[in-house]
Simulated scan of single mutants.
Amino acid sequence: MTIRADRLHVLQVLRGKEPFLGGSALPGGFVRLPEDLEATALRELTEETGLDGSALHLEQLHSYIAADRDPRGPVASVAYLAIAPNLPIPVAGTDAARARWEPLDDAGRASDPLAFDHDQILADGLERARTKLEFTPVATAFCGSTFTMTELRRVYEIVWGVALDPPNFHRKITSTPGFVVETDTHRPLGAGRPARLYRRGTAKVLHPPLLRP
């Protein structure tokens, strides 16, 4: 997932072969032994989109093992969630006919569901991202190496789908130990006062958590 044009987007591919030829799906593929799962996730991301996942926030999401989830037969899938700042247009490869960033609220519409059980995987990934924003500093993974407080707040607003009070948000972020570190630099904002830049701190979990409204 990434944020583009102030909207949350998910990476999708058009399948280049059966099953679901021409259908929309999340990028993925089969393990090639002796690969481990994470190595497979990184390789498939590169092969199907041209993106390098080694610098992204990457975490295992869930395992999907329902017997009827793949028409080819019993297939267990392990999904990964990758989060990054605004990424370039992906380039499809291997068994993907096309790769694209799709606004998440347009993905998996009833008129155009994702292949396999990818609608469920996508829903699980969104809920994981929303929950991680409450309890960890993962919101900074949607930003660059430095960011303004407004940019960080917009991450929360876009992923959660709510409006947040700027002064209250600023107070909560700066009072949470290790969440962000204030830098000595500013970013010009038109004719207004330059905005202070921050970077991610050392905290692994947020205490207290930043709970959704």
Score class of each variant (00 low, 15 high):
Lys172Glu: 10
Leu122Tyr: 01
Val138Ala: 11
Phe135Lys: 12
Val155Pro: 01
Leu126Asp: 13
Asp112Asn: 15
Met149Arg: 10
Asp165Phe: 00
Met149His: 09
Trp160Tyr: 04
Pro167Asn: 11
Ala110Trp: 07
Leu133Ala: 08
Phe142Met: 05
Ala123Ser: 15
Arg153Trp: 02
Glu134Cys: 13
Phe116Lys: 07
Arg153Glu: 09
Val138Ser: 13
Glu182Arg: 15
Gln120Pro: 00
Asn168Leu: 15
His170Thr: 13
Leu126Trp: 07
Val155Tyr: 03
Glu182Trp: 01
Val181Ile: 14
Phe147Val: 00
Tyr156Cys: 01
Val159Leu: 05
Ser145Val: 12
Lys172Pro: 01
Leu126Gln: 12
Leu122Lys: 10
Ala107Lys: 00
Asp112Met: 15
Phe179Val: 00
Gly161Asn: 06
Ser111Tyr: 08
Asp165Val: 04
Phe179Cys: 02
Ala141Gln: 08
Lys132Trp: 09
Asp124Gln: 10
Glu127Thr: 15
Asp105Lys: 14
Gln120Gly: 14
Ser145Thr: 15
Ala139Glu: 08
Ala129Gln: 14
Ala141Asn: 13
Leu133His: 03
Tyr156Asn: 02
Phe147Ile: 06
Thr140Gln: 00
Pro167Gly: 11
Leu126Tyr: 04
Ser145Pro: 10
His170Cys: 11
Phe179Asp: 04
Phe142His: 02
Val162Arg: 08
Thr148Lys: 11
Glu127Arg: 14
Asp124Glu: 13
Ala123Met: 10
Pro177Leu: 10
Tyr156Met: 03
Tyr156Ala: 00
Thr176Gln: 02
Asp105Glu: 15
Ile158Thr: 11
Leu164His: 10
Glu102Met: 15
Val181Phe: 00
Phe116Gln: 08
Ala129Cys: 13
Gly178Asp: 07
Pro113Arg: 13
Val159Asp: 04
Pro167Asp: 12
Val155Ser: 04
Asp105Gly: 13
Pro137Ile: 08
Arg153Asp: 09
Pro167Tyr: 06
Pro103Glu: 03
Ile173Phe: 04
Thr150Leu: 11
Ala163Arg: 15
Asp106Glu: 15
Ala110Pro: 07
Leu104Asp: 11
Gly144Asp: 12
Val180Ile: 15
Glu134His: 13
Val159Thr: 03
His118Ala: 05
Trp160Ala: 03
Thr136Cys: 08
Thr174Trp: 05
Gly125Arg: 02
Thr140Pro: 06
Pro177Met: 03
Ser145Leu: 14
Ser145Ala: 14
Thr150Phe: 10
Tyr156Pro: 02
Asn168Pro: 00
Ala163Met: 13
Val162His: 01
Glu157Asn: 01
Val159His: 06
Ala123His: 10
Leu104Asn: 06
Trp101Lys: 03
Arg128Ala: 08
Trp160Asn: 06
Cys143Thr: 03
Arg128Trp: 06
Trp101Thr: 02
Glu182Asp: 06
Asp106Pro: 00
Arg109Val: 01
Asn168Ala: 15
Thr148Phe: 11
Pro166Gly: 04
Leu164Met: 14
Thr146Pro: 03
Leu114Ala: 09
Asp165Ser: 13
Ala123Ile: 12
